Simulated scan of single mutants.
Amino acid sequence: MFEAHTRRGRLLLQLVLTLLAIPFLLPLVWMVQGSLAGQGWKNYTDILALPELPLFFRNSVIIAVLTIAVVYLCTMLAAYGFAKLHIRGREVFFWLLLACLTLPEVVLITPLFTTTLQLGFYNTYWAVVLPLAALQVPFAVLLARTFVAGIPDELMEAARMDGASTARTFWSVILPLTRPIGAAIIVLTLISAWNAYLLPLVFLLDSSSQTITILPQFFVGQFSNDQTKVLAGAAIAAIPEIVAYLCLQRLFERGLAAGAIK
């Protein structure tokens, strides 16, 4: 981590960080300003008065929660196995898993579409949840494995001496100590699942099952391409992500820092 021990160094570091943050803040500022143009706060009240809005939010929440649960469980189990268990060929399996990071989402649409039809998942939440989780797991395992590898082996040996099984050690020793990286995985998965656009658009046929990311298209038709209400809807849709990050900020930063450095 960068540390500044003098007043001049701290001011310089603050200036550099501010300049780096400006390109990311400007789109948010323009979005809020655009959402308040025209009728002002009435743009937000019109959006909140839509009868379809709670349904879209509910669908996004269900998909996000299911995706987080699948990713968290698979990631922690995989990280535990890759970091602490003596599995034959585990490095081969680990690098095969990382190879999945090279596959873009759009390339997988056709095989995923065929698979969901054959399994009967089409137009269900699982048609979106399982692909989203599969795309998120490799990077999450990459972070979590480094974190789990940093847990002292003496703790696991002590658990075994007390008669704990492998599963019990995972539940009682590993999971409590991986809260920081778990928080980072939850936030990253939430952002990915909440902002998913292509998969819900392709795999969710009924309008009643659509997610919050489809709202801009809905607003274009509902309000005759009123961009102020489109921007207001985008601002409302971003609130859950902001709240989740603020609640888990400290654990998120600790998890990323520990997961990136062994």
Rank of each mutant, 00 (worst) to 15 (best):
residue 202 V to G: 07
residue 61 V to Q: 04
residue 103 L to A: 03
residue 126 W to I: 00
residue 56 F to I: 00
residue 59 N to A: 12
residue 109 I to L: 12
residue 138 P to C: 04
residue 136 Q to T: 14
residue 51 P to G: 05
residue 127 A to F: 02
residue 140 A to R: 01
residue 121 F to D: 00
residue 193 A to K: 01
residue 72 Y to V: 07
residue 143 L to P: 15
residue 180 P to M: 09
residue 218 F to K: 05
residue 3 E to T: 12
residue 182 G to F: 01
residue 89 G to E: 12
residue 187 V to C: 02
residue 39 Q to F: 06
residue 204 L to S: 07
residue 121 F to A: 08
residue 107 V to Q: 09
residue 188 L to I: 08
residue 62 I to A: 11
residue 190 L to R: 01
residue 79 A to W: 11
residue 150 G to M: 12
residue 201 L to M: 10
residue 30 W to K: 12
residue 182 G to H: 03
residue 161 M to S: 08
residue 19 L to A: 14
residue 237 A to S: 13
residue 173 V to K: 09
residue 128 V to G: 08
residue 186 I to Y: 02
residue 59 N to W: 12
residue 7 R to A: 11
residue 58 R to G: 14
residue 182 G to L: 05
residue 160 R to T: 09
residue 185 I to K: 02
residue 239 I to N: 02
residue 66 L to W: 03
residue 42 K to D: 01
residue 123 N to I: 00
residue 9 G to M: 03
residue 223 F to G: 06
residue 240 P to E: 06
residue 246 L to G: 00
residue 179 R to L: 12
residue 222 Q to F: 06
residue 99 A to N: 04
residue 32 V to R: 03
residue 206 D to N: 10
residue 215 L to K: 05
residue 237 A to I: 11
residue 217 Q to T: 13
residue 222 Q to A: 12
residue 150 G to R: 13
residue 177 L to A: 13
residue 31 M to Y: 10
residue 260 A to M: 14
residue 83 A to T: 12
residue 51 P to I: 02
residue 23 P to Q: 09
residue 225 N to C: 06
residue 42 K to Y: 02
residue 37 A to P: 03
residue 182 G to S: 11
residue 77 L to M: 13
residue 74 C to M: 10
residue 58 R to S: 09
residue 142 L to F: 15
residue 196 A to Q: 14
residue 231 L to A: 07
residue 248 L to P: 07
residue 35 S to N: 08
residue 78 A to R: 07
residue 201 L to F: 11
residue 238 A to R: 02
residue 149 A to Q: 14
residue 31 M to Q: 15
residue 13 L to T: 10
residue 72 Y to P: 05
residue 183 A to F: 07
residue 128 V to T: 08
residue 172 S to A: 15
residue 262 K to W: 08
residue 1 M to A: 14
residue 178 T to L: 04
residue 46 D to P: 09
residue 121 F to N: 02
residue 13 L to Q: 15
residue 29 V to W: 10
residue 228 T to H: 11
residue 220 V to F: 11
residue 152 P to W: 04
